[in-house]
Design a protein around this nucleic acid. Sequence first.
RNA 1: GGUCCGGUAGCUCAGCUGGAUAGAGCAUCAGCCUUCUAAGCUGGUGGUCAUUGGUUCGAAUCCAAUCCGGAUCACCA
Length: 599
Amino acid sequence: MSLAAQIKHATYTALLELFPGADIAETSITVNQTKPEFKGDYTIVLFPFVKLLRMKPDELGNKLGAALLSTSTLFDSYEIVSGFLNMTVNDNFWSGLLQENFNNEHFGEQATTGKNVMVEYSSPNTNKPLHFGHMRNIFLGYAMAGVLKRTGNNVVKANLINDRGIHICKSMIAWQRYANGATPETANEKGDHLVGDYYVKFNDAYKQEIKELVAGGMDEATAEKEAPIMKEAQEMLRKWEAGEPEVYQLWQTMNGWVYKGFDATYKRMGIDFDKMYYESDTYLLGKSIVEEGLKKGVLFKKDDGSVWIDLTDEGLDQKLLLRGDGTSVYITQDLGTAKLKYNDFKLDQSIYVIADEQNYHMQVLKLILKKLGEPCADGIFHLSYGMVELPTGRMKSREGTVVDADDMIDEMISLAQQQTEAAGKTEGFTTEELATLYETIGLGALKFYLLRVDPKKKMIFNPQESIDLHGFTATFIQYAHARICSILRKEGLPKLPAKETFASFTLTLPVTPAEKKLAVTLEQYPDIMNDAANEHNPSLLCNYSFQLAQQFNSFYDEHSISKAENEEKKQLRLMLIIMTAQTLRHAMQVLGIRLPEKM
RNA sequence: GGUCCGGUAGCUCAGCUGGAUAGAGCAUCAGCCUUCUAAGCUGGUGGUCAUUGGUUCGAAUCCAAUCCGGAUCACCA
């Protein structure tokens, strides 16, 4: 149990003892960290009980403070300031925390829950390379999976690849028309980029054809339907669905190129998956669910044979589930996939990392499954995140304003190199070590930049700011970690020394404010991890890690570790920095960010 | 128009299940390297928490209305 929770509970018990029969709920007790300008570590807010117990704040505070001192060994002293009871925690608590946990690799993790949780993220289309918008999705999904794993769940990282449909056929048609048989090898281009180029070419050609048709006297709406290249794409989709070998083979080949490209990008990002789903396998699923829904009378059929669900009672609209010709629409296959996932892994929770533009879709999906009585419905959770925009507005792939993922990674790594060289910090590294370091810094900065804001909020990608390696960045945290590692190297200690290393430690001297600040923050880590899981918000770990690194830097500036005043202080501070480094590593590892030992 | 999300310092964001004088980073100004890594530290400047009303001992936080911005409401995916 966290210290704050312990204090809350101790307060509850003390209040019940002091005022038997009073109507006090533990949840009505507020325990906050004490503001820096007051003496104390944690503060109990007295106001809620002043009225209830008909007592003056000072009187109540004195009674409660005295009771806490006598019943709990946690506290040293208390002070009352205008309705706030500020408790000072005994120094032994902090040294105990350190001795107990300084080398605990699993500090911050929760006991296993036995729950099966799937996190689906990335979920790209195979007609273009990954771009900046995907990166937020990917890093967020990976981080969320990491958080859920550390909080005791069995996590399945899943990727649902949108490998079929009209958009894929567009790239294929354009390739047939314009590529002259080019392959990634002959064009010397990553496969996903090559295919993406032809997707762009399709749209250019399409626009051109529309223009010509309109010039010939056709109205625009008709021209959009009648453009030959669009008709060819639609024809190709029909052939694909009919399983025509030639089309099917081209489809396989081009998707193969794309997958190779994706794999390379995922690998550079340090991202992986446990399970791949392909829409070409799942797009026909869901029909049987619809059939059953019809039988149950949850769904209804219109005169043209199309199947619908009426959600007007829920404040939503009617939603189409099957076309008049019996073919499925997007949501039909999602119904099927949801059930498939559930059956594959006996999921307690199924998280979809999808942009907030699909909030309505996800709401409808869950609702339909619920109405159909599917057991997978309850576990569905839409981790909705805001879209990434440029300072000039939304990125549009058709308008070429997207920031490509591979380019962005290259840019960040080369920037890390420039900054490192400019700072003259390249000495003592081999060439390979430097390459690794630049990658660690560049990718870390990128991931942190995308993870540090609340997922729910849309974010503006400011190229200027994203490449900054100062302030609220991964670099700042990496630097603090490298500093600690440097001290440990000089002390001849490993990153996580054995417990016996400090077996002789006994606390006799007062803990300084800077020392305590670090210890207080370290103690809160498990709570933060828990919050990140409950709120589905990995940005909490960014904020926390930055705060911890910041406090370490202040501490480092104020206190010498190697040349501490005496052996006791040295040991205390070593435990502090070892645990700090371990906690930073732990938090960053959850987010997929590496910390160098030297930089 | 219906539904949903957002509006906090010049910029980017924390804080939002109500608690003390609203916090960081960037930018800007002034200091700190003969001492464990200055990618750092210390301090200053900078606020009508969109607006108005309400609830409360107490509101950036809860409620209502209004204004502004965005998303969505396809036999697209």
